[in-house]
Design a protein around this nucleic acid. Structure first.
Lengths: 261, 261
DNA sequence: GAATACGATTCCGTAGAACGGAATTCGAAA
DNA sequence: TTTCGAATTCCGTTCTACGGAATCGTATTC
């Protein structure tokens, strides 16, 4: 496996401290399924020289962001990263207001309702509520990531951004998309803009995963930040018609209330 | 408020990359209640010069670990920190095995059952199960931190560590403890060692918070890492006697099973 | 609208931190 | 014991990160 990380150090950007960026790219290269990584593997994934990786992993271990397994001389993510996430969530007062509203909609629509924020070209789930009755629903957890390009949430986020930011982000997405797929991605984004203008909602009918339908709205906060609120589930349970006419208005209303906090 | 961070850059350690350590200490200085911090505030908390902080926050913002609020020129933790936490939890296969066992004990003991790992002088909650019926219980969330020194969990962790590591850690705790409180802390740790030897359990009866009792056991994994499993709740519900004779043996059994995975 | 104040950012000369190729050490396996 | 792969350390070099001072940007006041 070669270099595949979107967080590869960007040496061109001015004023970016490379040692810091490199250290964080080491943490980022742990993906699902990689409980343990050795220095060599990390070096390959990040594209950094062995000696450098060795120093970075030592530093991160001292600080608690990596745990070293003495037996195998390998590293895993340390507990310190978790408490950072906790600090973040604990400070988002919107969550306290959002949870009950989200849960209520989840319960009486038999769907999953999620709140997410942007990280690069992905959306990161901040909260996720599933119908108490319907525990079979696909379980998406807080902190999980999904692409902006082909989800309702991502399209909604794009609609909520100021035009300049949106154009920059779309350009980034384009650059990261294989040539052959761009036409389709672009169409989805444009359709999202139209839907949002005409109906105040973005849709994803099977675009993210076949048989998963969802709708989403952007949330624009007083500080200028933008998030997205999503409601989705299995297509056989959530027809496009039900999403638009029944659930849609309620989602819009919740979004409206959450913006004014 | 002055410098108060235990993660202040340690210039003495050999081979610790300072730029990386400093950047992470910027992230760490966001505590409960600080949604937004400006460069100045960050500079005060970390003890770093303004110019340096400015460069660090720029870098962290580019990488997604901080979000900048344009309106106020202030920063908040970014979504990237959350997805790191998710990567960590997603890779801990022990959680999948632990959850059902923990939940079962929580349900039929009417108490909270938690799994935690060490981060410096703290324990970080990896998972927390509360009795489904008893939702009033104090809600401790994943990623939250609590001191090692005066909790059952912390004492159990100490008992699980190899002697060398334990001695080092106790010395660190001592250094971080105000003179006047050390005698009491030390007594608690020593009592924990005795309890563990005699009964296979550590106790905290009101030591963490008045009216909260709990017991804990260490988990020593095949890779050499040590965690702790805790069961606790309001003192009026969980007498020392019930904890020791009823819940204790079950907690020990769960711990035993989780070690062999 | 000018003046003031406060904080963020940039400048720039300097020190020394981080770098990385090569050598060494470590640890596991044969 | 030898061998091999990986991690770590060494060390001369380079250029990064540094931080005090100057500048800029913005909000506030008169």
């Amino acid at each position: 496996m070669g270099i595949e990380n979107e967080t590869i150090v960007n040496d061109k950007d001015p004023q970016v401290i490379t040692a810091l960026a490199r250290g964080l790219s080491v943490l980022r290269c742990f993906r699902q399924g990689d409980r343990f990584l050795g220095n060599q593997e990390i070096a390959e994934r990040t594209g950094l020289p062995k000696a450098t990786v060795s120093r970075l992993t030592q530093t991160l271990t001292v600080l608690g962001y990596l745990d070293r397994s003495k037996r195998f001389n390998q590293y895993s993510l340390g507990a310190a990263v978790l408490s950072l996430g906790y600090s973040m969530l604990g400070n988002m007062d919107i969550l306290k207001s959002a949870r009950p509203l989200m849960q209520e909609l989840a319960d009486n629509s038999e769907a999953s309702v999620s709140l997410a924020a942007r990280d690069g070209l992905h959306m990161v789930y901040l909260e996720n509520c599933v119908a108490s009755a319907n525990m079979i629903a696909l379980r998406i957890d807080v902190g999980a990531r999904t692409r902006i390009a082909n989800t309702a949430m991502g399209r909604a986020l794009l609609c909520g951004l100021p035009k300049d930011d949106r154009d920059v982000l779309i350009a980034q997405i384009r650059k990261a998309t294989p040539k052959g797929e761009w036409a389709q991605i672009k169409a989805g984004i444009e359709q999202g803009a139209i839907d949002y203008q005409e109906r105040g909602l973005c849709f994803s009918l099977g675009d993210w995963r076949e048989n998963v339908n969802s709708i989403a709205v952007p949330l624009t906060h007083a500080d200028g930040s933008v998030q997205a609120l999503n409601c989705g589930g299995p297509a056989w349970q959530l027809s496009a018609e039900k999403l638009e006419n029944d659930i849609g208005p309620r989602l819009v209303e919740i979004g409206r209330r959450l913006e004014n906090i």
